[in-house]
Every structure is written in C-alpha cells, then in structure tokens.
Amino acid sequence: MTTVTESLPAVSRTAVGVAALRAYESNRPDRLFEDPYAAAFFEAGRSVLPTPGGDPLQDGLGALMYPQIVVRTRFYDDYLLEAGRAQVVLLAAGLDARAFRLPWPPGTRLFEVDLPEVLAFKDDVLATQDASPSCERVVVRTDLREDWAAALLEAGFDPAVPAAWLIEGLLIYLSHEDAEQLLTTVGELSAPGSRVSFEYRAADAPDGLIARARTTEGGEHVTRLWRGGLRTAVPEWLAAHGWQPSAVTRAEAAAAFGRPADGNATADGFVTAVR
C-alpha cells in the first residue's frame, strides 16, 4: 500500500489521533461503538503523530480527549440513524467510517466532504480492507473554506430534499467568521425538515475541555490550530438563523451511555437543530 501521510494538512493529521482512540474503544468489551477500520487508519498514519506509540492513552492529550471522542462518536452515530434522512452530509468527514460501519436504511445517500489529500488517504486505506459502503457514498473533494457548496451541488446534493448534516470536530479549527459562514451556507442548502448537529464548548470555562487541553503537556501540536469557532451562544445563534435547537451536555450524553463524566463535562456538549 502506498499512503501519502506526509501530505496530510496539519489539521487533518489530528484525524489519525482520533482514529487511534476509536480503535482503542472498539476493542473494549463494553464499547459504545465498533469501528473495524479505525485501527487500519491509525496504523497507516501513525508516523505523522508526535507520539506514534502503540497506546493512544499514553499521550496526555489522547487520554484527556478520549472520553469526549468516544461519547461524541456514539452520540453522532445515534443522531444520524435516528434522523432518517435520505441525504446525509458529513462536513470534514475525516477518517470516520460511518458510510461503511453503520446500518443505513435503503436509499440513503451519504456525502463525505473534505480535502482531497484526506479523502485520498482514506480511500487508500479502505481499499486495503476490502471495505464496502452500506449506503450510496459520494466523495466530495473540496476545501470548506472555499466554495464547497458548489462542489456539493455538483456531486448531486439536492437542496430541495431534507438532509441530515454532521459537523464533527471542525468548528473549533475555524475563525468566528468562517464558522458563521459555514453554518449560514448549511442553512441556505437545507430544506425544511433538515437537521444539523455539532459540538459546542465554553472556551472561557477554567476547567473545561479547551482550557485543560491547552495546559496538557504535548497538546500544543493540536491546540495551536484551534481558532475558537462560533464563540457565541450556539442555541441562540441557531434559533436566530431559522433552526429549532436542542442541546445536551457531554455529562448528560455520557450518563445516557453508561460512562462517567470527566472533569467539567457540563461546559461542553452537543447541539442538534431542525430546520
């Protein structure tokens, strides 16, 4: 196999670390989800990580982020399947394998939107696993800071049909202006009945996940890429832009899945909204 991990942009390299955590969770007897491809992504891309060791929890940032990553993965799995929309759009799809590992209903069309380098690496690894999607998978190679909407429409997305949007782990890497623009574009492409979900975090919480990550030894390779995201009251922003939002804290989500909450898990969580 020929993989070009060194060509992965810095932000996208964090997806390799997330894959390592998903692989670790998939091996637990009490796992919240099973991702049979996560280990392959980690093995193929581990050389780009600052600490490419075998145990992702040996890394300080990995140990800190692990509870959040696994809870959000399960939360979003459930959200997408419960949404029951014929169109699903994963913005910054990264190395997630939902198109392959989730039991999609017949007729589901799933769009994976990400940088060409990321999707090339992803497809290269999946080819070695003889992976077959359980839905119609459409790959959209584009930069979300540019006119990604045109690329999505050209790939066959129908703005007249309700969609389920997932924006996983992306907004914190965007400036406030870029985050607003991305969410505004999502709204413009969303027919009535569409849904969207993403994380919210309180950047100023002294013991919240963001603050703890910034002081974790070895975490600067990730935290230096963070640009803040929406930086406003997320439910209120969504309500003002034509959505009906609901939010759940990470502590509440963890409890629903039978996992203990770590640290101040009430300072961040997940928002879901209906158009």
Results as ranks from 00 to 15, higher is better:
89 V>E: 02
118 V>L: 10
88 V>A: 01
87 Q>H: 09
104 W>A: 10
117 E>L: 04
57 L>R: 13
107 G>N: 11
84 G>R: 15
100 F>R: 01
87 Q>N: 12
118 V>Q: 06
65 M>D: 01
78 D>N: 10
81 L>A: 02
68 Q>N: 13
76 Y>D: 09
117 E>D: 13
95 L>Q: 05
53 G>C: 14
49 L>E: 07
37 Y>V: 05
61 L>D: 05
106 P>L: 13
43 E>W: 14
120 A>V: 11
47 S>F: 06
92 A>N: 03
76 Y>L: 14
73 T>W: 09
115 L>C: 06
53 G>A: 12
79 Y>E: 05
68 Q>K: 05
75 F>G: 04
42 F>N: 00
96 D>Q: 09
63 A>G: 11
101 R>L: 08
115 L>P: 00
33 F>K: 05
49 L>R: 08
84 G>L: 14
41 F>M: 08
46 R>K: 15
45 G>A: 06
56 P>W: 00
100 F>Y: 15
51 T>N: 09
67 P>M: 08
95 L>C: 12
97 A>K: 01
43 E>Q: 15
97 A>H: 05
87 Q>S: 12
38 A>V: 03
41 F>Y: 09
81 L>M: 13
106 P>Y: 05
60 G>W: 07
45 G>T: 13
111 F>P: 00
83 A>G: 13
71 V>E: 01
35 D>P: 07
63 A>M: 14
32 L>Q: 07
55 D>P: 15
46 R>V: 12
42 F>V: 00
33 F>V: 06
87 Q>T: 07
52 P>T: 13
75 F>M: 07
49 L>N: 06
113 V>H: 09
102 L>K: 03
71 V>A: 09
60 G>Y: 05
83 A>R: 05
108 T>N: 03
91 L>A: 14
99 A>H: 01
60 G>H: 10
94 G>A: 12
77 D>F: 02
75 F>D: 05
59 D>G: 13
66 Y>K: 03
73 T>L: 10
103 P>N: 13
65 M>A: 08
94 G>D: 00
57 L>S: 08
33 F>H: 06
57 L>Q: 07
73 T>R: 03
84 G>H: 15
76 Y>V: 13
104 W>T: 05
44 A>L: 10
88 V>C: 10
34 E>Q: 14
47 S>L: 10
60 G>I: 02
86 A>T: 12
98 R>Q: 07
82 E>Y: 12
66 Y>C: 11
75 F>K: 02
55 D>M: 14
39 A>F: 14
112 E>Q: 14
56 P>H: 10
61 L>V: 03
97 A>R: 00
80 L>P: 15
92 A>F: 03
94 G>V: 02
72 R>K: 12
49 L>P: 15
110 L>W: 05
106 P>M: 09
40 A>F: 06
108 T>C: 04
45 G>N: 08
103 P>V: 08
112 E>A: 12
88 V>N: 02
86 A>N: 11
91 L>C: 07
75 F>Q: 02
70 V>C: 07
32 L>G: 11
38 A>D: 09
35 D>E: 15
104 W>G: 04
114 D>C: 10
113 V>D: 04
54 G>A: 13
